[in-house]
Structures are given as structure tokens and as C-alpha cells.
């Protein structure tokens, strides 16, 4: 598949002199699920803001669907790449849920019939339609998060970027967000998330990018998550499933990263009579 996003040798320094990005390069394939991992301050949020055209490259380049992101294309980029911010309170500002979700589509200049249809579809997709007339103030954190996601869905972007989508969510809230992400993936939307959650990254992503000190430390599949050098350097931990198997090196197998892989490994061990029933 074609690369929908391409970042090349990107540098970015904040006005107070903090160098947040130090030559970042990577590419994202259309329709993939990308998890960007890295410690606090690694530069993940700064990087994501570039994908949406909110920050423009000071050096290096970002391109979306082959078009370079710059002053001229930033408006277009924002309709192509939707960004869900970490704190939904920053994103959901209107006095009703419905008004908030329609904010993006109205900015896009769509007809009022089109806006209505998109807003209603987006609210159904995140399971928040019944709350359409409620003020955001009354919603739980998880519900606000889902409204924030709906606000982006209603713009129907090809790429959705989420900064720490699971932060502060309770287990059921996390599960709802994962389900929404799965649904979006089914529809062919490219999804990029920034997260600290290695278990989520292992289970969900098909492309892992590990960032540290404004640089890409590693770029590949979930096998990166069990490489000692990378995990230590990026101050991450191993996925929980992998931790169990890493403690039994005498098994001499490829360490599984997801629950499904682990189940398969254990089944095989039972079959080969390595484990007595």
C-alpha cells in the first residue's frame, strides 16, 4: 500500500528554545494502525501537531498523500488528518454535544443537510447519540472523550491522530475507545496514536514507532517491544504477556506479545506434551 504520511528529517524548536524534534523520519502506510511510544517529553505530541498542520516544519518536511504540508496546504491537511487531543475538555467547548460535533463540518462549509447527516452518523458511531442535547459539562470523562472523537469523525478524514487516547480512562472507557478504533480500522481509516501503554500497542498496532529525545529510536512491528536494548533505552516496560515468557527462557521460543499469541504458544506446548495436563 501507498504511504499516506511521510515525515522526513523533521526538526522543531519551541520559542523558549526547547528542541522538541531532532530529525524525525518515518512513513505511515494507508490503512495501518500506528502506535507511537516513548517517555514523557519525547516529542510525541509535538510530532502529532505537525501531522495536522498545527505546527509547520522549521526544517525537514511532512507530506500527506504526497502533498507537502505548508502554509498553503495547512487548511486542506486539517480536513485530511483529524486530531483528537489528549484532554477532551480542550476540544469539546460548545454548549451542547450536537453543536460541538457540528463545529468541524460547519467550518468545512458543508450544507446544513450534510452537516446534520454527518453529525448524527458520528454520534451513533461513538454511541453518544442519546446525549446530543446535553451540555458537555454533565458528561463523564470517557463520554467527553467519545464526543471529541465524534467531532473528528464528522469531518470524515482519511487519517485520525489521537494523542494519549487512553489517558485517565477507566477500563470500560478504554474498551469503548478500542472498539471505536477497531471500527474505524475496518472502514479503512489510517489511525495513529501516541501512548505509553505497551500492552495496548502490542495488542492493537501493526506498526510501532518508538520515539526518544525528538528522534525515532526504532520503527517496525511489535517485535520491537521485546528487544531489551530498545525497551530500556526508551524507558518502556515489556508487554505483560511477554514478561511472563521472558521469565521462562528455557522454553526457547519466540516470545509472544499478545494474548492470542500466548494462547497459541501454550496450546502447542500442551500438544507436544511439554506441559502435562
Amino acid at each position: 500500500m501507498a504511504n499516506i504520511i511521510k515525515v522526513e528529517n523533521l526538526f522543531f524548536t519551541y520559542s523558549d528554545g526547547t528542541r522538541a524534534l531532532n530529525g524525525v523520519s518515518f512513513a505511515v502506510e494507508e490503512g495501518s494502525r500506528v502506535a507511537m511510544l516513548g517517555p514523557n517529553g519525547a516529542g510525541k505530541s509535538t510530532l502529532l501537531l505537525h501531522l495536522n498542520g498545527l505546527h509547520l516544519p522549521q526544517q525537514g518536511s511532512v507530506s500527506v498523500q504526497g502533498r507537502e504540508v505548508n502554509k498553503k496546504t495547512e487548511k486542506w491537511v486539517r480536513t485530511m488528518v483529524g486530531m483528537v487531543f489528549q484532554d477532551p475538555d480542550n476540544q469539546v467547548f460548545s454548549s451542547t454535544v450536537w453543536d460541538d460535533v457540528s463545529f468541524g463540518p460547519v467550518n468545512m462549509g458543508l450544507s446544513s443537510a450534510e452537516v446534520t447527516s454527518r453529525v448524527s452518523k458520528a454520534l451513533h458511531a461513538v454511541g453518544m447519540y442519546e446525549y446530543k442535547d446535553k451540555p458537555p459539562y454533565h458528561l463523564s470523562y470517557g463520554q467527553k472523550k467519545r464526543v471529541a472523537i465524534a467531532g473528528i469523525l464528522a469531518m470524515e478524514p482519511g487519517v485520525i491522530v489521537l494523542d494519549e487516547p487512553m489517558a485517565y480512562l477507566d477500563p470500560s472507557g478504554k474498551e469503548q475507545v478500542v472498539n471505536i478504533l477497531d471500527e474505524l480500522h475496518q472502514r479503512g481509516i489510517t489511525i495513529i496514536i501516541a501512548t505509553h501503554d505497551v500492552d495496548l500497542a502490542a495488542e492493537w498496532a501493526d506498526h510501532i514507532i518508538i520515539v526518544k529525545d525528538g528522534r525515532v529510536l526504532a520503527d517496525g512491528g511489535s517485535e520491537l517491544l521485546i528487544q531489551k536494548k530498545i525497551v530500556e533505552e526508551a524507558s518502556l516496560t515489556y508487554p505483560l504477556v511477554s514478561r511472563i515468557f521472558l521469565n521462562i527462557p528455557e522454553l526457547a521460543i519466540t516470545v509472544p506479545r499478545t494474548v492470542n499469541q500466548a494462547v497459541k504458544v501454550i496450546r502447542n506446548l500442551i500438544k507436544s506434551n511439554a506441559i502435562k495436563q
Partner: peptide, 19 residues
């Protein structure tokens, strides 16, 4: 941050069409 989030949803100082 609110302003950034608004920009990312296509806000440009004045909303165009009104319902």
C-alpha cells in the same frame, strides 16, 4: 490549547456557513 483544537477542526476566525 482550546484554540489549537479549534484550528485543527478547520476554524479560521469566522465560521462560514450557519445552520
Amino acid at each position: 490549547r482550546v484554540y489549537q483544537a479549534m484550528l485543527s477542526r478547520g476554524y479560521c476566525g469566522e465560521t462560514g456557513a450557519v445552520l
